[in-house]
Amino acid sequence: MCGFAHVETWVFDLDNTLYPHHANLWEQVDNRITTWIAAYFGVDGLTARALQKHYYKQHGTSLRGLMIDEGIAPDQFLDFAHDIDHSPLAPDPSLGLALAALPGRKLIFTSGSRRHAEAVTRRLGCEAQFEDVFDIVAADFVPKPAAATYERFLKRHGVDPRKAAMFEDLSRNLEVPHALGMETVLVVPRGSRQVEREDWELCGRGEAHVDHVTDDLPAFLTDLPAKFLGR
C-alpha cells in the first residue's frame, strides 16, 4: 500500500530525522565516542576513529561492538557520549504543528538514549507530541537494523506494522520495517548543505524498501493531509 491513509502509528528515528542533518548535532556525539574509545584503548584519535567506525558499521552502534568485544558496561558510555550542547537546535513550531495534525500515535524509536531524545524534543519544542521513546536501553542494547529489535519495539508498544509508518535517515534501517508492512520514509540532507556523514550513510534512497524520500520533514508532514490522507 503506497500512502498513509491507513496509518495509525507514526514512528520516528531521532538523530538526523526529527532535526535537519546540517545541524550536525550527531557530529558532537560522534566526536565524544571517538574520545571515549581513545581513552579506553589508550590510542591516538585516528586509531580510535577507525575502531569506532568499524564497530558502528558492523554492529549498528559503536556501543554494541564494544559490549560484544570488550564487555563494557553501557551506562557510563551513554552518559558520556550524549553529554553534548543541544543549543544548535532551534525550536521548530512547524514540526510541532505538523506532528499535532497527524491522526494517531507518535513514537520515537532511537538507537540513542532516552535522555538524549528528551533533550532534543524539548529543544525542538515538540516533546508533547510523542507518546513514548523506545531507546537503546529498551532495545536491550541491540540497535537497528536488527530484526529482533523491531519486533521488540512493536510488541512493547502494541504496534501493528501494517498500520504504521517509519521515518529514518539511514536507508538500511528501513529494510525490516518495509518487510513488516510499514510505510517507509527516508529523510535525507537538504540540497547542498554540508553534513558530516559517511558515503554509505547517505546512499539507498532509490532502494525498493524506501517508499518516500524527503529533505524537509516538517513540510512533508504538513503536506500529508492533502496528499496522502484524503483530507
Rank of each mutant, 00 (worst) to 15 (best):
D199H: 12
D211V: 09
R193L: 07
A147M: 08
V187N: 02
D169W: 02
E198H: 13
L180P: 09
A179P: 03
L174Y: 01
W200E: 14
P161R: 09
D199F: 03
E198W: 07
E151L: 13
G206I: 14
M182I: 04
Y150T: 02
T149G: 02
H157G: 09
G191E: 02
D135I: 10
D215P: 12
A147H: 09
S192W: 08
V195M: 05
P189Q: 07
A139R: 01
V188R: 08
A147S: 12
D211C: 12
V142C: 14
V185P: 11
V137L: 06
V210Q: 03
N173R: 05
V159H: 09
W200H: 13
P143R: 05
E168Y: 02
E183V: 15
G158Y: 04
G181Q: 08
D160W: 00
R197H: 11
M166R: 12
V185S: 11
R162S: 10
A208E: 10
A164K: 15
A147G: 06
D199G: 12
L224K: 06
P145L: 05
E196L: 05
Y150Q: 04
V213N: 01
R197A: 13
P161V: 05
R156M: 13
V159S: 13
V213C: 04
R162L: 11
K155G: 05
E175D: 10
F153N: 08
